[in-house]
């Protein structure tokens, strides 16, 4: 599918993420406040979110995934209003429907490659069911790793700390994709890579998210990646980050 066709298809697909009138300040921290006017993400859509450092991209992702809850506004994911859920319910929701890739991959260095990939399944029975529909969870993890270019015999028994940067990135992607979550969130996953590796990794990521039928929202500073995405969203267009007085203390996100 070409980028243009994909963009058309995404435009026709229903919204699976809808944020409106969201306002958030970190509890106990005075300065930073993020206000999101409107943001939507369609099923299978690939969105590149760009913005300078400190603009609130990570806070935005934390809101999107339900790690924190806004003080006001509405965060609707897959038809569920996250703002109406308690912290535990949001955690369970995130485990089921989100796969997350961090900037530094954030693998547990002492854990084995397979354990790192299987970790989300411990908190997401639905994803576990999907992952084990055709084979065992471990086999599914090995299949994903193989598809991402990591042969099982290369990683079997190895801890994540012993992998190269490129290998760690693939493991992080496998962890985000296992159990086919509907939304994959990637927080600057290519920033540590050179141009060739960036391209190769994005190819793999796009192929796997497409195969899983997942939407992808990726944060980056790098605007050169824009042509590969269905839509590019500068954070400044959808949200306002401001610094309030030191006395502001937001309510608990619980």
């Amino acid at each position: 599918m070409t980028v243009e066709l994909a963009r058309t298809a995404a435009a026709l697909a229903p919204d699976i993420v809808r944020l409106s009138g969201v306002r958030f300040a970190w509890p106990g921290r005075s300065a930073f406040v993020l206000e999101v006017d409107t943001f939507t993400l369609s099923a299978r859509e690939r969105v590149l979110l760009i913005g300078p450092s400190g603009s609130g991209k990570s806070t935005f992702l934390s809101l999107l995934c339900g790690i924190v809850a806004p003080q006001s506004g509405r965060t609707e994911i897959l038809g569920s209003d996250l703002t109406g859920l308690g912290a535990a319910a949001r955690d369970a929701f995130r485990a089921e429907h989100f796969g997350i890739i961090f900037q530094m991959f954030n693998l547990l260095p002492y854990g084995s490659v397979i354990d790192n990939v299987l970790l989300p399944l411990s908190f997401a029975p639905g994803r576990r069911r999907r992952a084990t529909a055709g084979a065992s969870a471990s086999q599914e993890a090995q299949r994903l790793l193989a598809r991402l270019g990591l042969e099982p015999n290369l990683v079997r028994g190895r801890s994540a700390a012993n992998l190269s940067v490129g290998q760690q990135q693939r493991v992080a992607a496998a962890r985000a994709l296992i159990g086919a979550p509907e939304i994959v969130v990637a927080d600057e996953p290519t920033s540590a890579l050179d141009r060739d590796r960036q391209q190769a990794f994005l190819e793999l990521l796009f192929a796997e998210t497409s195969a899983a039928g997942a939407a992808l929202i990726m944060v980056s500073h790098d605007q050169s990646l824009a042509p590969r995405f269905d839509r590019v969203v500068p954070l400044a267009d959808i949200a306002t980050a401001s610094h309030q007085g030191p006395s502001y203390v937001g309510p608990s996100d619980q």
């Binding site: 995934c65 790690i67 912290a87 535990a88 955690d91 369970a92 995130r94 485990a95 089921e96 997350i100 961090f102 530094m104 954030n106 693998l107 547990l108 970790l119 989300p120 411990s122 908190f123 997401a124 962890r175």
Partner: peptide, 15 residues
């Protein structure tokens, strides 16, 4: 803290 952030990201409750 990174370890805890990873656990939280995959759905581990703060508890």
């Amino acid at each position: 803290r990174r370890e805890m952030a990873i656990l939280r990201s995959v759905g581990a409750r703060a508890r």
